[in-house]
Design a protein around this nucleic acid. Structure first.
Lengths: 128, 128
DNA sequence: TCCATATTGATAATCATTCCTAATTACATT
DNA sequence: AATGTAATTAGGAATGATTATCAATATGGA
């Protein structure tokens, strides 16, 4: 008998697929609202629990802010957070080759991963 | 009569000085515990309120995580977050000259500031 | 010193997230 | 296909960080 074996559930799959196909970086609450359409009886706790698990397994990433947001895209990219409307955008124009992003060690320890957040006004908010 | 004039209070000064002279990136609760030594009757709400104000004025910076931490050093530097002990370290070995950190614009908008977080194991935790 | 008002202290309220637990479900084994 | 058992869920209560409220206090210009 294998113990501690992970099981696939419809809830897990729905949550992951929802994040995989959106680019809007939804909050947990927004994920909850979204997956409810497919599975109306899903529990909020299930959403939070699975977001946490998916993150710990590295299948999604969390963007910490006043309220956490989630991104199903784990490819190497930065995030632009609009200081006016609060929307989060993917930024792929990062200089992959440059020093800091290739660095594996700094004085204080060994780097496993990094996150780069850019703050400013998005195109839409800048106009006004 | 000037309205909406900011006033200096001992609470504000104590909170700012506390952050200025520490390098430990304390949470709001830790700031509260620290400034209580100088001003025992200070209120928790006053600490949260002033941390928020100082941050909005750009005099300190916030490091968002499960619980927010604060840094009185607003010079350009990255943060290393140990994935084991949770401690936060300053990293000054960032490549100031390289592309992304000098960039002022990306497709989605104009960059005012950026934050770079490095994740890994600190020297102390790596040993074990 | 006086006054208008910005700020504080104390506590209640809010809100995101986690915990609890009985009911349900997945899946290895029969 | 049926069974047993451990993993997972639903639902609601609990937690904990942060914010709101408001009477009391303190700042700083006149």
């Amino acid at each position: 008998m294998i113990i501690n074996m992970e099981r696939t559930t419809s809830q897990k799959e729905i949550i992951f697929k929802f994040l995989e196909k959106t680019e809007s970086h939804p909050s947990a609450e927004e994920v909850y609202a979204g997956v409810k359409k497919k599975k109306p009886r899903i529990s909020r706790a299930t959403v939070y629990r699975n977001l946490k698990n998916l993150k710990n397994k590295g299948r999604i990433q969390e963007i910490p802010a006043e309220v956490s947001h989630y991104d199903g895209n784990i490819s190497s990219h930065a995030h632009f957070l609009c200081q006016k409307c609060g929307r989060i955008f993917d930024v792929f124009e990062i200089c992959q080759g440059c020093g800091i992003l290739r660095k594996k060690k700094v004085k204080v320890g060994e780097i496993n991963k990094f996150k780069l957040y850019l703050y400013g006004y998005c195109r839409n908010c800048k106009r006004k």
